[in-house]
Amino acid sequence: MAAVTFTLTDFGLQTLTGKSPRVIFTPSSAGVKGARLFPTTPIVVIPDGAGNGTVTLEPTDGVVPTVWYTVSIEHLQPGGEYTHYDVLGYRLYVTDQGGPIGSMPGVPLSPSSVLVSLDPPPAGYKGWWLYSPAQGQEMPLDDPLIGELRLVS
Rank of each mutant, 00 (worst) to 15 (best):
T66I: 13
I73K: 07
I43G: 03
V44C: 01
A35W: 05
P78D: 13
V45A: 13
Q77Y: 03
Y69I: 01
V87R: 15
D86C: 08
I43A: 10
H84G: 08
I73L: 15
T40M: 15
P59G: 01
I73R: 07
Y85N: 11
T54L: 03
V32G: 11
R91C: 04
L76T: 08
L37P: 00
V71A: 05
V32H: 06
V44D: 10
Y90Q: 14
V32I: 12
V87W: 03
L88H: 08
G49M: 09
G79Y: 07
G49W: 00
L92P: 07
T56L: 14
S72T: 12
Y90M: 12
G62R: 04
A50V: 05
P65R: 12
G79S: 07
G62E: 00
K33V: 13
G80N: 03
I43Q: 14
T66K: 12
D61E: 15
P78Y: 06
P42F: 09
G62W: 03
L76H: 03
T54I: 10
T41Q: 13
T40A: 14
G79E: 07
G62Q: 04
V71H: 03
G53H: 09
L88N: 05
E74M: 10
T40L: 08
V44Y: 04
P39N: 07
P42N: 09
V32A: 09
I46W: 04
T83P: 00
G53E: 08
H75Y: 15
F38N: 01
G79L: 09
L88T: 06
T66W: 00
Y90A: 11
V55G: 08
P59F: 07
G89P: 02
T66Q: 12
Y90T: 14
P42W: 06
E74C: 07
Y85V: 09
L88I: 13
I43F: 10
G79C: 10
G80Y: 03
W68C: 14
G62C: 02
G49L: 10
T60V: 02
L37E: 15
L88Y: 13
N52L: 02
K33M: 11
P42C: 13
D86L: 11
R91T: 05
T83G: 07
V63A: 04
E74P: 01
V44N: 03
H75V: 02
T70G: 10
R91H: 14
P65I: 11
Y82M: 11
Y90V: 14
S72N: 03
P59N: 08
T56C: 09
V55C: 03
V87E: 15
T60D: 05
E58W: 01
S72F: 06
G34S: 05
P59M: 02
L92F: 08
P47C: 01
E81P: 00
G34P: 06
Q77I: 00
K33S: 14
T54Y: 01
R36E: 10
N52E: 04
P42S: 08
I73G: 07
T40G: 07
V45G: 00
A50I: 02
V45S: 11
V44E: 13
P78S: 10
P47Q: 04
S72W: 05
V45H: 00
V45F: 02
R36Y: 05
